[in-house]
Design a binder for these strands. Sequence first.
DNA 1: AAACACGTTGGTAACGTTGTCAACCGCTAG
DNA 2: CTAGCGGTTGACAACGTTACCAACGTGTTT
Lengths: 337, 337
Amino acid sequence: MDHGGRKPTLKDVAALGGVSVISASRVMRGAPNISPALRAKVEKAAETIGYQRNRIAGSLRGQATELIAVIVPSMSNHVFPQIVDGIDDALKGSQLRLVLGMTKYEDTSEEAILRDMLTWNPAGVILSGLEHSRQTEEMLAHFAGPIVEVMDCDGDVIDKAVGVSMEEAGQLIARHLVERGYKRIAYVGAWGERPKRSLKRRLSFEAELARLGCPIITSVILDEASSLESGAEGLRQLLARNLDLDAVFFANDDLALGALFYCQAQNISVPGQIALAGYNGLEMCQSISPRLTTISTPRYEMGRLAGDLARKQIEGDTAPRQQSIRLEMKLIEGETT
Amino acid sequence: MDHGGRKPTLKDVAALGGVSVISASRVMRGAPNISPALRAKVEKAAETIGYQRNRIAGSLRGQATELIAVIVPSMSNHVFPQIVDGIDDALKGSQLRLVLGMTKYEDTSEEAILRDMLTWNPAGVILSGLEHSRQTEEMLAHFAGPIVEVMDCDGDVIDKAVGVSMEEAGQLIARHLVERGYKRIAYVGAWGERPKRSLKRRLSFEAELARLGCPIITSVILDEASSLESGAEGLRQLLARNLDLDAVFFANDDLALGALFYCQAQNISVPGQIALAGYNGLEMCQSISPRLTTISTPRYEMGRLAGDLARKQIEGDTAPRQQSIRLEMKLIEGETT
DNA sequence: AAACACGTTGGTAACGTTGTCAACCGCTAG
DNA sequence: CTAGCGGTTGACAACGTTACCAACGTGTTT
């Protein structure tokens, strides 16, 4: 089966089938206008010697590969896996494959990863957020394929963006808390507010609170990753300031849940003594008791749509640049506010 | 900057720098024995025209690419993202990139995805579990690079495996439940017991229960995905059978947590009326009250080690084939049993 | 009967890089 | 003074595929 230890090539298939190399190529990639006889010969030969296409060679001749570069911060969080899931589903049925890189929330690594990925000549690029280094933007400016930014939608778009509005999120929660009568409100963030999305959300939250005549009392921004523990820690730090707070908005549900569990352990009544709200709308939040107030974001859909946009453009749809798709978010009024 | 709209190639760099193409190539990939003068000329030229390596062309000349094919069932679950995270970390600092495919728990898709991925000539393959279709095994037999199977470690290994023992998991929980005095024990699974890992775990669990003189009473295997809701549904179905059960082992923590929340909502006391145990050891389980009894598995480490093994072999380490690394799992005795 | 269109097949030349071998340089050892 | 050696550079030919153009046969139109 192995001819000289080498992997069989189109040449081998052609030789065995008694046809030209180019004909074999056409059959293997399903080109039109092939006689059934030729097709049969080639397919039989390919089968016999166990031929496998070599798309590396193919993409060298053609221009781009059928790889989509996807760069996200991390997988150890509940948000990005779902985005990736959506992208993968969108790509299903096409020949496109997802190449994944993670920045681990390090500022400089998006650039490094992108630079590396571009050496593979990907057909498209999907990255998260709208804020990128100058170098990154420059690289992207020279990139020919679709560029989709997921997560966020208010800001300057390079090519296409799919996301939710951070502004809206901050406002929704601010209004909700004020409407419920909370007056002494605080905020807890993590990861030193990288990526910038969470910062935008907080600023909008604070601006709306101020507009409603109820300015934010204090904030804690942790350096650590978001986790249940850091949520508890954040709340602990807030409470230690003795500011008589009555509500806290957390950068995400992980933090908020951690704080909620902390309260339960410490017998702090929620929302009696303190109200808690999160962001993301993880499934978990609606199953626990009390149900967490949060904002549900369409994570899977964002990924799905991002994948679709990239795919369509690669497949020839001439979509307009500078397109920003804003998806709906939903305030989930739980029992913690 | 763009010469004729085309991306600049080594030829352009060489022309501008007044050196040969091959010298430019050597500088760009950091080959040894280059004079500082030549290096400087090339680097300057590359910088000026914004040259980017084209690894597609490079890997055509060389043999394999620097891509690692990773095939997992899904990302919408809490297990695989952490594995992927570990793999990515292991690859950091190398030139290797991760190409991701998801089977969505469909039996035939691993094969299809692998076939597709092999057309990219990856340097290594990482897949989950030890059970694969005959076609898959055949393709892998012809594959030259490292093949690492993650998750499971008892069974026949193709090349290398990193995982935990499903046997051990079943036994640990069985013994724990019996030791705590539970006698009427049931099991809940999901996804129609795909992948096979969960089946192995259940069989070992049942075998151990039988050995301890306490055979399993009944089981529910749901077709749906694992989720909090399906966990609740599974428990509901079990209870409806009126078998006077006193403990239930769930295929994973999602199911177990869902069941726990269901019990809390229905005022079924845990573990008073019924004891619950899960599998995976998600962070969440130890934060809620009551803390869930479960088995903690080293997910990140599995990925990390799998990535390391693949990387080392690609970098030249001649590791023995048929190597199976068994990682430790830990029974976490929570408050639900 | 000639001209033409169309479906089908093949030959050739790329695509951008790197492995191999050869050539050259300056230097040291004999 | 020459042979030889290591460090450095270059020419050439691949790697496996596909775009492009040419050529063929068959059937249809004028």
